[in-house]
Design a protein around this nucleic acid. Structure first.
Lengths: 233, 233
DNA sequence: TGCTGCAGAAAAATCGATTATTCATGGACG
DNA sequence: CGTCCATGAATAATCGATTTTTCTGCAGCA
């Protein structure tokens, strides 16, 4: 069932791909802090590669809104802010609603099975490896939308997912934010999707986002952004 | 009133920026045909620069959905298709509706003046230079949305605008597709926006898109895509 | 004291050459 | 007769070095 494409995680594929994946991971998880200067030379050493793949990967990440390019002055990771988070939440709600409805409208048994499978894999992974869980979590959410034959829309959703999850990490991924709830929410979404009830599924999905969103927004509303922001003030 | 930023069109800014702008222009206008192989070396000579800026620009264009990257096998311009066009149209309608309403909700006199100005400039340019007109046209449309404080959304809209206009060029920009109508539609949108009537403005804007969209879709529905597609069949 | 401008250092951006990969061709083999 | 593999050519990808540009700290000046 897994694809036979080159896996950038290993030594396969182009250096650019590897670096892209690695950097995205580092930014999303907060390993590279918001606003942090990204020196080509530093990354070159850290990732053991030349300048070209690094610059190319950074260019790609710029389009993903995870990196900002300052012409002639290099790159830095994107800043975070409450308004940025709100925008991401709004766009996700708008676009995933659209994608989910289309996906369900085109429902097939194959798609349904893929969704069930993705959900199961997520469940199975839940407790153990957080990194693996996050991958499965994204896979589940994307599988819900995957049946919409709108590739651009799906790419937008994927980007927004990553942007959103970055805030989760920043808030301290440790927060097992009412995980019991979440598990049940996932089950509810799955059930509605499998039942091909677009209204219900969309409602549950957006609620899922808004809950988490409100929770994170709350965190940020109080003492500003949790981590991030180097000690400068 | 114009910005003091480096202007990539001249010799200013980084080579990457220049190349990016130049390539985007070439792809959007159909100078580079859909699906055309983009050989680094060829572009290197044609644009008189090294491989690095070219690759970087191509990476950026990949994220704009104007170029496709085939890992280890180079780049080519994105293909065009009726379904791709429909997706673009749908996304534009969804996202610009959102952006326009937000823009109007935040309306200020400054914004209003900027919109009026953009409209005037477009009008003034109308007949003469088509290239200049296209720039003004985009500027007008973006100015309508510009007051929405959602930078990601605005970038999406900008990208989608370019993707859409590409189809206009492919259909033969020559088609002065009922330009009389269009001019009036623009005036109507402007008027509604200035009156801060979000419902009316959005309605007119989306209609504007759907009209043009239906027209182009019609063209494509018949004999496939107009230009593009190398002589292969 | 506070501003201005000039080294020198640091970093970004770019280039030209090298290496790795894919593609095209033709010949051997089943 | 068609398929498979070897070989060389073409091209992508990457690297290391060079060139620009920006940044930083300090001296000169009002």
């Amino acid at each position: 069932m897994d694809t036979a494409y080159p896996n950038p995680a290993n030594g396969e594929g182009s250096a650019t791909h590897r670096v892209y994946g690695r950097l995205r991971q580092m930014i999303v998880t907060g390993d590279l802090e918001p606003g942090e200067k990204l020196k080509i030379d530093g990354l070159r050493k850290r990732l053991e590669t030349g300048a070209s793949p690094i610059r190319e990967a950074l260019s790609l990440l710029t389009s993903d809104h995870l990196v900002e390019r300052l012409d002639q002055r290099g790159f830095r990771t994107a800043e975070v802010s409450a308004t940025n988070f709100e925008e991401i939440l709004l766009l996700r709600c708008t676009l995933e609603d659209l994608a989910l409805r289309e996906s369900i409208a085109n429902a097939t048994d194959d798609w349904e099975e893929a969704v069930v499978l993705a959900h199961h894999r997520m469940q199975r992974t839940a407790a153990s490896e957080p990194k693996a869980f996050e991958d499965m979590h994204k896979a589940f959410h994307m599988s819900l939308l995957a049946n919409a034959s709108y590739p651009i829309l799906l790419k937008f959703c994927s980007q927004l997912y990553d942007l959103n999850i970055r805030y989760r990490y920043l808030a301290g991924n440790a927060l097992n934010y009412q995980r019991r709830d979440v598990s049940e929410e996932h089950a509810g979404i799955l059930q509605a999707a499998v039942a091909r009830d677009a209204d219900l599924a969309s409602d549950r999905l957006l609620n899922h986002y808004k809950m988490t969103g409100a929770f994170l927004a709350g965190l940020m509303g109080n003492g500003g952004l949790p981590r991030g922001k180097k000690a400068s003030a």
